[in-house]
Amino acid sequence: MSDTLLVTGASGQFGRLVIKHLLETQGVAPGSIIAASRDTSKLADIAAKGVKTVAADFDDAASLEKAFAGVNRLLIVSTDSLDGTDRRLRQHSAAVAAAKAAGVGHIIYTSMPLPDESLVTFAPDHLGTEKAIKASGLGYTILRNSWYMENLFASIPNALKSGQWFTAAGQGKTAYVTREDLARTAAAVLASSDTSSNTYTLTGVEALSNDEIAALASQIIGKPIQVVHVPDEGLLQGMIAAGVPEFVAPTYLSFDTNTRAGKLATVTGDIEKLTGKAPITLKAFFEATKDAFLAA
């Protein structure tokens, strides 16, 4: 592998896993990898493995172009700027522009399923980024990542304690997938020599409703969960009453309305196609994390 590969957001959970899989699964030489972060002090452990680290601030276009210089394949991990403005899209657009200016050959981007149809409040950020990448003229691989299984730590622990899971998702289903499997796939694509432009939807092996997920969690973890179906407004007001900030609550609600509309139910074999290995099931995830769910 002679290409230079750069991972943005390398100090975050996803970025760290991508670098782990570049090194351990893909066998990429540390000297061919660049880990980028706004704060490089958080990358000391990665640097100790021989990986180069650089400062890259999505709000500083000059730092991005400098960081991307000499990079052949670039993974743009979507930022977490969800403040109700278009900041996230501006950040991503700046990264795409910097990649073009720096002469990057291929962009890989972590998007979301059906950004053109999704009811999730931040879907336009992903759709706009995809359009910016395509308009750049650079080669690209767009990875439309389904919801993390780890996201269930935001709901299942409370449901285990109270015995109830309040949801507005109805019988809509989600093809949950682990962060690990998504990062493993991103590493495979980043390390690949494929220069064709493609869009993939990365999902788990099955789509399940919240009723089915609750039943599975109850069976494996050993505590009953009753799913309580509520209207959108009821869930919204319940979240606010529980302390969720009013500007954030509509985004959380949009996850349920999007699920109810069937926008996360697609199941593909793209992870296995790209890596040669199928993602783990939700059953296996619950079995592996049972103690963590009880302790959360």
Rank of each mutant, 00 (worst) to 15 (best):
A56N: 09
A56P: 06
D57Q: 11
D57C: 10
D59G: 15
D60Q: 09
A62Y: 10
L64Q: 10
E65S: 15
K66D: 01
K66I: 01
F68R: 01
A69C: 12
V71G: 00
V71K: 00
V77E: 10
S81N: 14
L82R: 13
L82T: 03
T85L: 11
D86Y: 04
R88I: 05
L89Q: 00
R90A: 13
Q91N: 14
S93R: 11
A94E: 02
A95I: 08
A99Q: 10
K100T: 04
A101V: 10
V104Q: 12
G105L: 04
G105K: 14
G105C: 04
H106G: 12
H106L: 15
I108T: 12
Y109T: 01
S111T: 06
M112L: 14
P113H: 01
L114C: 05
P115V: 01
D116V: 01
D116A: 11
E117Y: 14
T121D: 07
T121H: 09
A123M: 03
A123H: 03
P124K: 06
P124H: 03
G128C: 10
E130A: 04
A132L: 06
A132H: 04
K134H: 02
L138C: 11
L138K: 13
Y140Q: 10
T141Q: 10
T141A: 14
R144F: 01
N145C: 15
N145H: 12
S146H: 08
S146F: 01
W147D: 08
L152Q: 11
F153W: 06
N158D: 13
N158E: 12
N158L: 09
L160R: 11
L160F: 05
Q164H: 15
T167I: 10
T167E: 09
A168H: 07
A168C: 09
A168M: 05
G170W: 05
G172I: 00
K173A: 09
K173R: 11
T174A: 09
A175V: 06
A175D: 03
T178K: 06
T178L: 08
R179P: 01
E180M: 06
E180T: 11
L182C: 04
L182Q: 15
L182D: 09
R184P: 01
